[in-house]
């Protein structure tokens, strides 16, 4: 089956083929098991994806989420254009216990706001690897690059065994 035919099959599944072409394709499908199998695979994938994002919930409380929106609206500001950086604290849940998070957020905000040449610490996300978060502590001369892959990643098997 050539590629154009495969795409036609997909278009048929998606209701994008004109009626005449659809009729011809239906006839062909009856006779071609390979085409039937491919169509079934495409349909199966669609079935699997159905309802995928039902149950994905915003991980913030109603009040907290709304308060930030309301603040922006009342300020009358246009949403800031994004310079291609991740928001400041991605991946922190991997780094610190939740109890210290608020303190660290405040401390780091102060450090970042106070920077502009001054020593402190800062976070950044590298565009070349969105899975990496860089943290730089100027005082100790330490740069941490945190790779936010799950614990089953290739590098994680180096945990000592019993």
């Amino acid at each position: 089956m050539d590629y154009d035919t495969q795409l036609q099959l997909q278009a048929y599944l998606d209701g994008e083929l004109p009626e005449r072409a659809s009729r011809q394709l239906r006839v062909w499908l009856e006779e071609d098991p390979e085409a039937k199998a491919l169509l079934a695979e495409l349909e199966n994938t669609r079935t699997l994806l159905t309802h995928y994002d039902e149950g994905i919930l915003l991980p913030e409380s109603r009040e907290f989420f709304w308060s930030k929106i309301e603040r922006e609206i009342l300020a009358g500001r246009k949403p800031a254009s994004r310079p291609g950086r991740l928001s400041v604290f991605p991946g922190l849940r991997y780094l610190v216990p939740a109890g210290s998070l608020a303190a660290l957020v405040v401390a780091t905000l102060l450090a970042v706001q106070g920077s502009g040449g001054s020593k402190g610490s800062e976070y950044e996300a590298t565009l070349s690897d969105p899975g990496a978060l860089t943290y730089r502590d100027y005082a100790s001369g330490t740069t941490l690059v945190w790779l936010s892959y799950p614990a089953e990643h290739e590098l994680a098997d180096d945990e000592p065994s019993d």
Binding site: L58, E60, S87, F89
Partner: peptide, 25 residues
């Protein structure tokens, strides 16, 4: 509608914080 919007942003960005930021925006 916030959950639906967030779910869409998350499905595209694959990152929770970005999805929250973008859905607020």
């Amino acid at each position: 509608h916030r959950d639906k919007l967030y779910a869409r942003a998350y499905s595209m960005m694959r990152n929770e914080e970005e999805a929250i930021d973008l859905s607020q925006e």
